[in-house]
Nucleic acid binder design. Sequence first.
DNA 1: AACCAGGCGCATA
DNA 2: TATGCGCATGGT
Length: 272
Amino acid sequence: MKIMKENNNLSVFTDGCVNLDYTLDCGQSFRWKKENDVWQAVVCGKKISVRQIDENNLLFYDTTEEDFENLWKNYFDLERNYTEILNRFKNDPYLTEATEKYYGIRVLNQEPWEALCSFIISQNNNIPRIKGIIERLCENFGDDLGDGFFSFPSAEKIASLTIEDLAPLRSGFRAKYILDAAKKVAEKEIDFDAIYNSDISFGRSELIKIKGVGPKVAECCLLYGFKKAEAFPVDVWVKRIMSELYPDGIPACAYPEIGIAQQYLFHWRRNV
DNA sequence: AACCAGGCGCATA
DNA sequence: TATGCGCATGGT
């Protein structure tokens, strides 16, 4: 990976397996917006603007090398060797098709709290409405960073609120789950560092202690928020994939990064 | 064990 | 334009 400074911007040359359009609009994150070919969001409390120049080149606007090294490199999972993983996936015909068609999806490493909160909201829900609820959550309780951008509110901030405070979100029965999660996280009853640094089985048993977090939401948190590539969220689309294509289970070549395989298969199956 | 709890996109009537 | 369906979890 080569990094070049261009005034205040950072030009990053990757291995080519990075497609922002696929990555930022495949149901794993809900806050990115594309405006004039530039993808924008607030991540880790900072506004980020990034553009795909070509297959190998990303341009990060107003970005320091320090922020890229400390935040964005990990966020976009750029340290992982996707070439090697996707080559291994080619031992399976369906994974071959999915990875060729949607080459460049990367599994993001989002902030644990944002991932947890987002996937609690995602349950029994569709993507347009998930985005709306999260947007209202940030507008109401996040920090105003100007130009219509808001940070994702902290667990501590949410923990200080009541169900009535959350009414403007129109999140329905999920509001009580959001509060329970915020309280358990703010009071360190759920220890993010421990989950991050432990085996996936520990994270599974911890996260389902939160009301509104079942197996599916827990797997999403572990995959997108705790960098567990071996997490495997099974939603209705993945259930279809499993019954239609893999009645005997996930092919061996997908291990151990079955979460990455899942992301390609999910997007592929949804866009048939 | 079957149903409901917000609400909305989506497919079908 | 109206109607029903799906959605992931917990509680009844």
